[in-house]
Design a binder for these strands. Structure first.
Lengths: 232, 232
DNA sequence: CGGGTTACTGGAACATTGTTCTAGTAGTGG
DNA sequence: CCACTACTAGAACAATGTTCCAGTAACCCG
């Protein structure tokens, strides 16, 4: 068998070496394009022009990739500017927070899976907490407000994304029909709930307003506060 | 080869025939005992004393099982009594809602995956909405309040469960250390956030109080309402 | 120059998963 | 006795995350 340089194609120029950053950015692109269930180590490797095993040199498990991708998404929030004033700042931060997660629907599904400890996620929490401190909150009220606001955003995103996973209009029609069919069991829903054109953005803004109103109301009376907590 | 009745064990008495109900209740038990990632069609079939394929006669996919299991969990809420008064009723309903989901941590992870349309989940939404109607809410404010409250619960559960998936105390210690190590980037968090003993229950109750306060405040001025919505 | 250590790559294989194909059996009604 | 319905199940398939082991390129120290 003849062996000569001329018969062998030159080894293809090595790609830019694989790095964590490249892996993550490609993973985000893949997740955005095809959704969470289509992200496979094999497919990711293929898109990166490398073997599957190579990924495992840079990353310990697939969950690592997901963690990194999720934090990458939170990174987009760093680039959103903040208006002056703590209430406007909060509204802006939380609206952007929600918008970013909705822009990458797969990210919402990762939320419950592990605590958010990536640098960008922490930076967001830091911004949130700093705004609340600026508003004058301290101690348990600070913690409760901070949790409440971020949990509110999480919940809104998670519930809204639940509708996106299938064909949304079809799902809505089906839900509407299903509800109307059993109207005797769900009289209030049948009367007041309009599944067909729910206004996600508007409801989010309104609800956020309620929450902020409630928090603000505690601001003045924080000394008297403790007993007004009684819930029932 | 000798063939005789006496050599053959009698065909084992048929189990109670497999039903959807039995499958679901066994699935819930398995999920409670071993968590979401350990629920396998094979393992489920084994626990039911039947073949894997048999499950697929009663159920179309594994997701069906999960949907049914999730709704089963919501069924526990039906058995919780309601106190008089709409505010107390809301607090009770939402606290129980949260408690039930936390009792079955796997259920929280299913929340974003598809809309909640099972009969028991719908019954909960019905109760929620009925209470808000009783409070005097209508139209967009009703919708916003209803979404806000259920989203708040969802978010609280999802975020809290994120900590449970690993060994929680260890995870908290690690998070605390991690945070303290990068204190220069997260000054507010380092100063005010106490990861080591966060009071989940207390924060939930407080935050719910804020939200309800905010909603209540809108009750009186609902006619004037629209413009006070401006957020920034 | 030379040998070895380190950083990185990848093919093939493994166990496990959801799901389907096909073949059956118990009981019932005609 | 036959056919039909309700139900059961073994074996197989394709896909997945992950690991074993064998490499290769580059650099460093003598």
């Amino acid at each position: 068998m003849v062996e000569s340089v001329w018969f062998r194609a030159p080894r293809p120029a090595r790609e830019a070496p694989l790095t964590r950053a490249r892996i993550v950015s490609e993973a985000v692109a893949l997740l955005d394009a095809e959704g969470a269930e289509r992200l496979t180590m094999r497919r990711l490797a293929e898109r990166l022009g490398s073997g599957v095993t190579t990924l495992y040199w840079h990353v310990r498990t697939k969950d690592d990739v997901l963690d990194l991708a999720l934090d990458e998404v939170f990174g987009e929030l760093d680039r959103c500017p903040a208006p002056p004033g703590w209430r406007a700042g909060l509204v802006r931060l939380l609206s952007d927070w929600r918008a970013v997660l909705l822009r990458h629907p797969w990210s919402a599904l990762l939320l419950g899976r592990r605590p958010l400890l990536g640098p960008h996620a922490l930076a967001c929490t830091e911004r949130l907490q700093a705004l609340l401190v600026a508003a004058g909150l301290r101690g348990p009220e600070l913690m409760a407000s901070s949790y409440a606001l971020s949990n509110y955003v999480t919940g809104c995103v998670v519930n809204q994304v639940g509708w996106r996973t299938q064909d949304e209009p079809a799902a809505r029609r089906a839900a509407d029909e299903h509800l109307r069919a059993h109207a005797e069991h769900y009289p209030t829903l049948a009367e007041h709930l309009d599944v067909l054109d729910a206004d996600w953005d508007g409801s989010f803004a309104r609800g956020l307003g309620y929450l902020l109103d409630g928090i603000t109301a505690r601001l003045g009376s924080s000394a008297a506060g403790a007993d007004t907590l009684a819930l029932e």
